[in-house]
């Protein structure tokens, strides 16, 4: 039943590549040249933009290595002749950044895993389960996206304080374990799965849990990955909430710790800069590893794959 058309195909393409007309050839060459100029222009622009974005980062690295008295000199130093790597060690130990990073990593991990898990479950329910007021409840979920965190911060603080969760990992993480955004993002992704996949699985004896684990999650990896990265970024960069909840060294996150470092008696600029780099490092590593997932997640709805 397979029709053998390869011979015909190659014959057709042979004809297509035989362009012998000199006028046409010149035209093709002109088009190619124009195309090349376009590429050069585009890359020049991108390079300039990348430079603008990266310059402050570069200056942070430079400043973190300079001796304290050189840093305030004018004009600013663009290339450190003497590099004082011990600033990083100072920030890590005396600035307690090691401790703060540990707290940040633990809290961020709990929030990320929690958000992904609750979002998958909520999105599954909104997509595949039939229950009363499904639409209404989903709209309420969406409505929570419109409420800024600052609005709920006082009641949340009250609750956490009543639970005696001040200065604890759960106090830092629990208010962020569920997100309307995540449920929305994943629901949109689940909706693109053909309904017949679920029906086929049902006929084959797969219940909701197994269908979720074997089919829905593997097929929605780009969206789930993107959500994980967003959750991580959000949790990592939190400032106000950890500042309120944790005044104990033990539970101080890196963002709060960094601010305090810049105001402490270690207030030498290079050490603060070194701390900044240390605090950004986990994020940087994460982005490098997951950049592909992130982009795919962002464009998932735009280009049907």
């Amino acid at each position: 039943m397979s029709a053998d058309t390869s011979a015909l195909d190659s014959a057709v393409s042979d004809v297509a590549t035989q362009v012998s007309d000199p006028v046409q050839e010149r035209r093709i060459r002109a088009t190619r040249r124009r195309h090349r100029i376009g590429v050069v222009l585009r890359y020049t622009l991108l390079t300039v933009l990348a430079g603008i974005v990266l310059f402050p980062v570069y200056m942070t690295v430079v400043n973190s290595l300079l001796p304290a008295d050189v840093i305030v000199a004018r004009p600013p130093t663009l290339w450190p002749e003497v590099r004082e790597w011990n600033h990083y060690a100072t920030a890590w130990t005396d600035g307690h950044l090691g401790l703060y990073l540990r707290t940040s990593i633990i809290v961020t991990a709990i929030i990320t895993v929690g958000q992904v898990a609750t979002s998958i479950l909520a999105a599954y329910a909104f997509t595949f389960l039939d229950f009363p007021f499904r639409r209404t409840i989903f709209v309420v979920f969406l409505a929570t996206l419109m409420v800024p965190f600052e609005v709920t911060i006082i009641t949340n603080f009250q609750t956490i304080s009543d639970l005696n969760w001040l200065n604890s990992y759960q106090g830092l993480a629990v208010p962020f374990l569920a997100t309307g955004f995540g449920a929305f993002l994943l629901r949109q992704s689940f909706l693109t799965l053909p309904r017949s996949l679920e029906e086929a699985a049902r006929l084959d004896g797969y219940g909701h849990w197994r269908f979720l684990a074997r089919v829905v999650v593997p097929l929605s990896r780009p969206a789930i990955g993107a959500l994980a990265v967003f959750s991580f970024l959000l949790a990592w960069n939190q400032y106000l909430w950890p500042l309120l909840i944790a005044d104990d060294e033990q539970y101080r996150t890196v963002q709060v710790g960094l601010k305090q470092l810049s105001q402490s008696n270690l207030a030498e600029f290079p050490i603060t800069f070194a701390g900044t780099i240390l605090a950004a490092l986990p994020l940087l590593i994460l982005l490098l590893v997951f950049s592909k997932q992130l982009v795919r997640g962002l464009t998932a709805g735009a280009v049907k794959g």
Binding site: P194, S196, L197, E199, A200, A201, L203, D204, G205, Y206, R210, V215, P218, L219
Partner: peptide, 26 residues
């Protein structure tokens, strides 16, 4: 009963082998 769907309802992330044995795994 077994059903054959109009869009075939194959699982895109599984090989043909895994697709075919999918009903047997339960």
């Amino acid at each position: 009963v077994a059903m054959v769907f109009q869009d075939y309802a194959l699982y895109p992330h599984m090989t043909v082998r895994r697709n075919v044995e999918f009903p047997l795994r339960t």
